[in-house]
Every structure is written in structure tokens, then in C-alpha cells.
Amino acid sequence: MPLHVAVATRAFKRYSTYVGATLAGIFTNCVFGVILCFVYLEVWGANPDAGGYDASDAVTYVWLGQAMIMTVAVWGGGSPDDLAERIRSGDVVIDLYRPVGILGWYLSADLGRAAYHLLTRGLAPTVVGGLLFDLRYPADPLTWLVLLAAVPVAVTVSFGLRMLASLTAFWLLDDVGPRMLLGFAALFFSGLTVPLVILPGGLRELAMALPWATFLQVPADIWLGKRTGLEVVEGLAFMGGWAVVLLAACAWVLHRAERRVVVQGG
């Protein structure tokens, strides 16, 4: 466990080296946030309770989305990308003979990265959004605690998905394709382009059951108070369930992949 904490803090530090990139990213998040806010305000101005949200909910949702993009790495990236590169180059062998599991190692690294992105690219655009628009904040301190617990779970679900895509590199060598397909699914089904609550009937049910709902929609509903009491517990169980299932899938694929590795030379 101390080892995994060390891996996570190193990952945090690694990302915190690139201050310029972080500032640039925050700026980009703000630009996209502002654009979406005006569009949503127009939509909710004409239909004040679309999807059970009001205008204030919708605008808050936009900034929560901007905060989560990098934190859960909707577009991919993070430690699974490093692993894919190491599978291609053969360096993965070093990972395999370490006396710690690959999954735990890479998950810690990704959580470290996510912590950094949450504190910078999560927090800063939300502050900017809060200054520009009228946002809604949870009143109950307990809600804040629940959210604090929910974010790492969301990151773990996302990690599981990204890891599965990266592990295809053991078979395909070039994993850009699977990663891209994953990015496409994540972008839409996370509710980043439009809130899942305003999707038409059947599609909405489907989207709400898929793992990507844990990225933004479930945490946002907790934040906005759309889920209360038992529904919060239900939401957390849903997120935790996906995290467990996906990590198990990763472990199984990794186990299969280990049989394929051939070490050349010596």
C-alpha cells in the first residue's frame, strides 16, 4: 500500500511539471464551457424543464462536465496510454517482472494523475464558471463527502475501460484504433456533449446503464440534488459495481496476455 501511494504521488508530480500545459488546458475548458452554457441557456430558456433540469442545473452541469473531462480522462490518456507504448516497445517485460501487480501499479498512477487534474483542470474552470454564471452548489456537507468518494470510483471505471483498450496492444500492436472507438463512445455516453437526462426514452435508459454514466451524469445528479437518500447509495453502488467488473475484466485479459509475451534476446 505505501508503494501504491508512492506511485500515485510520483504521477501527481509528473503531471504538475507542465504548468504551461495546465494553464492552456484550463483556458480551453473555459472557452468550451462558455460556449455550451449559452447554448444550454437558450435551450432551457425555451423549455424550462427539459430532462427534469432547470436552467441553473443545466449551466452547472456544463461546468461539472468541463471539470470531469480531464479528471476521468474522457478522451483517453493517463497511465493506460503509457502501458500501451510499453507493450509496443517491449518495456512491458520490466512491468511484468516487478513483484507488484501491473493493475495496481497503473491504477495508482492514474489516480495520482486524476488528483492533479481534479485540483487544477477540475477546480479552476468551475471557479471561472461560477464567476460568469449562476451555478448551483450542494448545501449538505455530506453530499460533498459523497462526491469526494465518487470521483475516484469514476476514475477507476474510466481506468478499467482505457486499460482494456490499451491491452489490445498485446494482440494488435497498434492500439490507436480501439482507443479512438472508446473515446467516441465515452464522449457521447458520458453525457459530455448533451446531458444524458435529455436523451430520448430508450437511448436514455441504455446510456444510464452503461459504465460511462459514472463519469459525469451520476456524480452530477448527486451534486445537483437530483438523487437523494437511497438513490445516492444506489448511484454509488452502480459506480462501484462497474469499477469491480471492469477491473476483473482487465485482470482476466492481462492474465491471457501474459501468455503471449515473448522476450527476445537477453
Binding site: 494488435l172 490507436v176 484504433g177 479512438m180 473515446g183 467516441f184 430520448p200
Partner: peptide, 26 residues
Amino acid sequence: SFWMMAVGSFLMTGLDFVAIWVLLRN
């Protein structure tokens, strides 16, 4: 990989428009 990327890129950009369609349904 090429075909997955091509299809992925087609779908990914197409989703923007699906998003607009979803907004306009409301």
C-alpha cells in the same frame, strides 16, 4: 487499426450533430 480509426473519427465527429439533434428535440 486504420479502419477502426476512420470509423471512429467518422462517428466521433458525427456525434456532435447527434448532440445538436438531441438538443433540438427538446
